[in-house]
Amino acid sequence: MATPTPAAPSPEGNQSPTEGWRAAELVARMLPADEAEVLVQNRQTTVFIPVERLLQVVQALRDDPSAAYEMPVTMTCSDWPERDLRFEVMYVLRSLVHNDLVTLAVRASEETEVPSLAGLYPGMEWHERECFDLFGLRIVGHPNLTRILLPDDWEGHPLRKDYVSFGEPVAFTHNLEWALSPQDRPEYLPGAIRGSVERS
C-alpha cells in the first residue's frame, strides 16, 4: 500500500482533480491530524477515520454543502487476517452536485461495533446486511440485521480469508480414488486407478 499523504491535493492548473478532495478537506477540518489518514491512489481518495468518528463524519459529508455526498454508492469490507484490526470497512459515497466520489474507510476487528448508517442513507441498509452476512461485521443500530444473501441458518462468513470455499472435488482420470466415493468410481479405467495408487 502506498504511504498515506497528510494533505489533500486541490485542483490546480490543467491537471484534472483527484476525486474526493472535498471529503479529504472536510475531514481535515473536522478531525485532528492524527485521527485521519488520506490515501490517494489512481487519482482517487480514500480517507481512513476511526470508527468512533464515523457517524459524525458521514453526517458532515452528507449535509455540508461544500461536500454534499448525498448518494451512497456501496459499502464493503476487505479482510486482512494478519492485522489486529482485520476488517477494512469501506464506504463509497458520491456527490452528484459536485460530481465527486470518495471512499471512506474504517478499520475494525471482529468485535468492533460499527455504527449503522441506515439512518443517514436508506440505501446502506442492505449493504450493511451484506457485510454482516459475508464477513460477520458487527453493526449496531441497524433496523433489521439478518442474513440477506445466504440462508438464515448458514454457519460461517464466506468472504473471510480463513473460510475455505469448496464445492466438490473434480474427478479426472488420475484422481478417481480421491475424488469419487467408492460406489461412484467406475470399473472400466484400471490403468487410471493403478496410476493413482502408484503415485501415493
Partner: peptide, 12 residues
C-alpha cells in the same frame, strides 16, 4: 454439475 462455480454457494 455446478458449472464454472465450484464453491460454497452453488449446488453441484
Amino acid at each position: 454439475c455446478g458449472g464454472i462455480f465450484n464453491n460454497y454457494a452453488i449446488i453441484q
